[in-house]
Design a protein around this nucleic acid. Structure first.
Length: 439
RNA sequence: GCCCAGGUAGUAUAGUUCGGUCUAGUAUGUACGGCUGUCGCCCGUAGGACCCGGGUCCGAAUCCCGGCCUGGGCGCCA
């Protein structure tokens, strides 16, 4: 087939911008064939672009012969352009259609697509991820990532207003930052290095200079997790603030969540409708449960956890039934939290760490940090970590480390909540998990 | 790392219990033909599959063993 060059054509409108008010005006549209319905004497072609779809109507006896010839060739997913006249009509749900005056075909697509993109026989997640570039053209995928984009935009602008600087810390590091979690190792010019699992230590150090910082970026966990809420590579939204404690950053966090939900609900109304999700904007303040209250609630539901133990997923699921929306869990036992979380001064066995939960999923983890060097060293030792390997980090505490607090939020988990997706891979463009490294 | 479930056309599924007209059914997609108002268009025709290897048996999609692959759960966490 002879393909056309784009030549001097320029898009005048996205499909979503074509309205009945443009009746009888000429528009130039670019996009892809989503579907062709040929009734014999009349043919309907659905043009899709990133903003939506529009119907092209071709009455075969009343269009130019070259338009008819070109439209004969069009198949699903061909990329093409059309110049045509907008026509107001009651025959389409959008109240408009476009009668082509010229068609340019830019590229073809394989006849048999690897997944059904019409929604009639939806493919399973595995087949969809194998054909991810194609899968992402589906309206639900587009809607999901538009929500994510909008959420991120809302978070950034909110944090900018609250005086936070956006920073970028290293992804390649010399040693484990938090102990615990497994790290991916990389060869760094013959030296052993690792992919960062979190910006934790760097962002804390930066409170010494920039006071209030945030970072959005990918982090890596070499845990062989096999669930619908874990990825080997995920995007973290991290903040850290000097001269603040857990209470301060929790207040900030609930404002962030409230703001994001408000903005997404307003700007992505169409996307949420498409995703059949009625997003509720949570009211501030969020419910705050102490660890002790959680244990008590669980006991009421015949789940007994000894004080000091971490809460297993099974118990979180029960808790998620009781509190189906956003809620904080505070006052965690110190030894259940990371070494950098500050123990309460009046009750050292309890920490100033907190989690923000949404149903049974942990969305955010944060807390007041330890800012005294001696205490940090002591906590490292209690955790079985060698202070010597944290030498570089510990030096920051020699230069007037301010009291500080912060949190880290999983962007994909947030997107799951905002779009009501049950699988984290749905909200990740190219997910990386235990068994998937491609595409 | 541990546990459970499952691999049937491009996609999604029926059939596996209890082996036998299963010559493997259906939907959708694809190809071809027909149709002037569709919007999950419709009608007709065609082509398209039992994960791999071994075993039991007169006979295996079905039962057994091994392998590979996938989904889900746990632990861990964002």
């Amino acid at each position: 087939m002879n393909l056309d060059s784009i030549g001097d054509w320029t898009r005048t409108h996205y499909t979503s911008q074509v309205t009945p008010e443009l009746d009888s005006q000429e528009v130039t549209l670019f996009g892809w064939v989503q579907d062709v319905r040929d009734l014999g004497g009349i043919r309907f072609i659905i043009l899709q672009d990133r903003e939506g779809t529009i119907q092209l109507t071709i009455p075969k006896k009343r269009v130019l012969p070259e338009v008819l010839t070109k439209s004969d060739l069009l198949q699903k997913r061909f990329s093409f352009g059309v110049k045509g006249n907008v026509k107001k009509t009651t025959m389409t749900s959008r109240g408009i259609e476009v009668i082509p005056a010229a068609i340019k075909i830019f590229n073809v697509a394989t006849e048999q697509l690897p997944i059904d993109i019409t929604g009639k026989t939806p493919a399973l997640i595995e087949a969809r991820l194998d054909a991810r570039p194609l899968d992402l053209t589906q309206e639900q995928s587009l809607a999901t990532f538009k929500v994510q984009h909008t959420a991120l935009e809302a978070i950034r602008s909110f944090l900018f207003k609250k005086d936070f600087l956006e920073v970028h810390t290293p992804r390649i590091i010399a040693s484990a930052t938090e102990g615990g979690a497994e790290l991916f190792s990389v060869d760094y010019f013959g030296q052993k290095a690792y992919l960062a699992q979190s910006p934790q230590l760097y962002k804390e150090e930066l409170t010494l200079s920039f006071e209030r910082v945030f970072e959005v970026g990918p982090f890596f966990r070499a845990e062989e997790s096999h669930t619908r809420r874990h990825l080997s590579e995920f995007t973290s939204i991290d903040i850290e603030a000097a001269f603040a404690n857990a209470t301060d950053v929790m207040a900030l966090l609930e404002q962030v969540i409230n703001h994001v939900c408000t903005v997404v609900k307003e700007k992505c109304a169409n996307e949420l409708t498409l995703l059949k999700h009625n997003l509720e904007v949570p009211t501030i303040p969020f419910k705050r449960l102490t660890y002790d209250q959680v244990l008590e609630d669980l006991k009421q539901h015949d789940v007994t956890i000894p004080w000091g133990e971490d809460i297993p997923t099974e118990a979180f699921r029960v808790l998620g039934e009781i509190y189906p929306y956003f809620y904080f869990i505070t006052d965690w036992p110190t030894h259940a939290k990371a070494f950098y979380i500050k123990p309460r001064e009046d009750k050292p066995e309890v920490s100033e760490g907190f989690d923000l939960m949404h149903s049974y999923i942990e969305l955010v983890s944060g807390g007041t940090r330890i800012s005294q060097k001696e205490q940090l060293i002591q906590r490292l030792q209690e955790k079985g970590l060698n202070p010597e390997s944290f030498k570089c980090h510990l030096q920051a505490y020699d230069y007037g480390m301010p009291p500080h607090a912060g949190w880290g939020m999983g962007l994909e988990r947030l997107t799951m909540i905002l779009t009501d997706n049950k699988n984290i891979r749905e909200v990740t463009l190219y997910p990386r998990d235990r068994v998937r490294l491609t595409p």
